[in-house]
């Protein structure tokens, strides 16, 4: 830099600062377009309500297990849930129960629930 014209250093300095400032502002604006989107998409995509609803419906089915089993209609209701889930919710659903087991002095059915909509997979064994 020696022997060069050394006028105008303030202008160069301010130019540098402005450039840095603009760089950070651009970074902020760039980020702001994505603020919240990934979060909201993640939450919308996760089928929380579908899974909750499916669980409560399966428990409802096993609430009336005795009646349905006696009528021989358990399979019908099961197939309703499986087919409608696949058709309307794009979800592969499977559920079943096992022989009752003694859990802390109560006879409870182990109920297995499987749910997979291609993005979220959910498996559960619940004693009901």
């Amino acid at each position: 830099m020696a022997c060069m014209n050394e006028d105008g250093q303030w202008i160069v300095l301010m130019g540098l600062l402005t450039a840095l400032g603009l760089f950070f502002l651009a970074l902020i604006i760039n980020q702001s377009a994505l603020v919240g989107q990934t979060t909201a998409e993640g939450v919308l995509e996760f089928p929380k309500n579908d899974i909750r609803d499916l669980r409560s419906e399966i428990f409802d089915v096993y609430d009336s297990y005795g009646t349905l089993h006696a009528q021989g209609r358990l399979g019908d209701v099961e197939e309703d849930i499986i087919r409608i889930s696949l058709e309307r919710k794009n979800a592969v659903v499977h559920f079943g129960n096992d022989t009752p087991q003694d859990v802390s002095g109560r006879d409870l059915h182990p109920v297995t629930i499987h749910y997979n909509n291609g993005v979220t997979e959910y498996d559960e064994i619940v004693y009901y």
Binding site: A33, A40, L44
Partner: peptide, 12 residues
């Protein structure tokens, strides 16, 4: 900052 991407939140 509220941006067009945030319209997912009212949907949610």
């Amino acid at each position: 900052i509220y941006t067009p991407g945030d319209t997912h939140i009212p949907d949610m």
